[in-house]
Amino acid sequence: MLRRDFLTMIAAVTGTAMIGGRAMAYDPTTAGTNAFSAEDTAFLDEVAEVIIPKTDTPGAKDAAVGAFMTVYVSDCYTAQDQQGFRTAMENLKSAATAQGKDFMQMSADERTTLLDGIAREARTASAEGAAKAKAEGRAAKNADLHWFTPLHQLVLFGFFTSEVGSNEVLRYEAVPGEYIGDLAYNGEPAWAT
């Protein structure tokens, strides 16, 4: 279609879509090349499930947190941070091996005990790293964090922003239609956003 015809169409018809797909607003984004294997995904799923287990509500595996983490790390992490994430995965495996077991062969209780210990240590170390960065005038994002902390945070992010996490563990209302700023609270789940 010639531009002038196109212009005439715009002037004459309102509220209709433009011809041609290339003019689409809000460019859709897609996942890039995934840097992880199916085994990695399965391992991450199991790690995530320890952090957010299935209870009377869905857990991390139900939310496919492992798969999300591989996409996120592949596309949103710098090369250096990706390496750190790989190291964290290896460190977790090594921590299990040090107890004489393959992480994937451990029972749920054994995994929980292992990760709880690491997470406890990580919390202290990362808090110290953050305090040090602050004292030295560095930005929080440049603080030295324990290797487990970014992985731990990504599990929580992946779970609570997932469809099941948002709707079946938290609550989500797509079109609230109103705002009520004074509502009695009786222990219901939190709003997802």
Binding site: M24, A25, Y26, T29, G32, V71, D75, C76, T161, S166
Partner: peptide
């Protein structure tokens, strides 16, 4: 018509809304 993300939910974005490294 062109507000293609207007009804999109967080979990539908491959990166949950976060900018990619690219």
């Amino acid at each position: 018509t062109d507000y293609v993300n207007a009804d999109n939910e967080t979990w539908n974005y491959p990166h949950r809304g976060v900018a990619t490294q690219e």
